[in-house]
Each structure stands twice: as structure tokens, then as C-alpha cells.
């Protein structure tokens, strides 16, 4: 399962890149699982996802809670709370 993962704002700065394609194992079933799997990759990812309560996510460009199943998701984004307007 290849997923296009995007990072924005402070999450992007901590991870050190804006987007990538990843192929997590089948055990990664939810957005939260994906976050755990990414956080285990390196200290940079760990720091980006350290404060879980402040991370928001979107699946295929729609806001979702972290508990959401990945299902057929093609694009998953992680970012801090939005501050536009």
C-alpha cells in the first residue's frame, strides 16, 4: 500500500521534507498507526510527532480524526492546527 504523505508548517520543518511516498506494513491500519510508524523512523520524525495532541490530519484532503482507518487512502497529511484568515 503506497501512500502519499504530506507535512505542513512546523511538522514539515521538523521532519525536514514536505512530502514523500511511503509503503507501511499491513499492521498500519489507522492514521494514528501511520503516525507511530513514521515517528519510529528517525529522531526528526519522532520530534515532529512528539506532541500528538497538537497534530491534525487529513485523508485525501478532508479533515479526519487520528483514529480514522486508512482504508484506500491515497494521500495523508499531518499538520499543526490551522492559523489562516
Amino acid at each position: 500500500m503506497a501512500i502519499h504523505v504530506l507535512y505542513f508548517a512546523s511538522v514539515k520543518e521538523k521532519v525536514g521534507l514536505g512530502e514523500e511516498h511511503v509503503s507501511p506494513p499491513a499492521s498500519v491500519a489507522t492514521v494514528s498507526d501511520l503516525m507511530d510508524w513514521l515517528a519510529a523512523r528517525s529522531p526528526k520524525y519522532a520530534s515532529a510527532f512528539a506532541n500528538r495532541a497538537t497534530i491534525k490530519s487529513a485523508v485525501d484532503q478532508t479533515h479526519v480524526p487520528l483514529s480514522t482507518a486508512l482504508g484506500e487512502a491515497r494521500e495523508v497529511a499531518f499538520f499543526p492546527p490551522v492559523t489562516g484568515g
Binding site: 499538520f79 499543526p80 492559523t83
Partner: peptide, 25 residues
Amino acid sequence: IDWLKTKAPFWKKETTTQGPHWVDA
């Protein structure tokens, strides 16, 4: 504007005399 502020995916980074920082929600 109320919903845009909390739902539309935009992020502000300010440059102050103390340096750049991301604006908190």
C-alpha cells in the same frame, strides 16, 4: 470567516525581532 479560521489549511509564520515563529492557534 469563523470557520475559515479553524478549518481552512493555512499556516502563518511571523518574523519578529526575536526571529521567525509559527503562529499558535
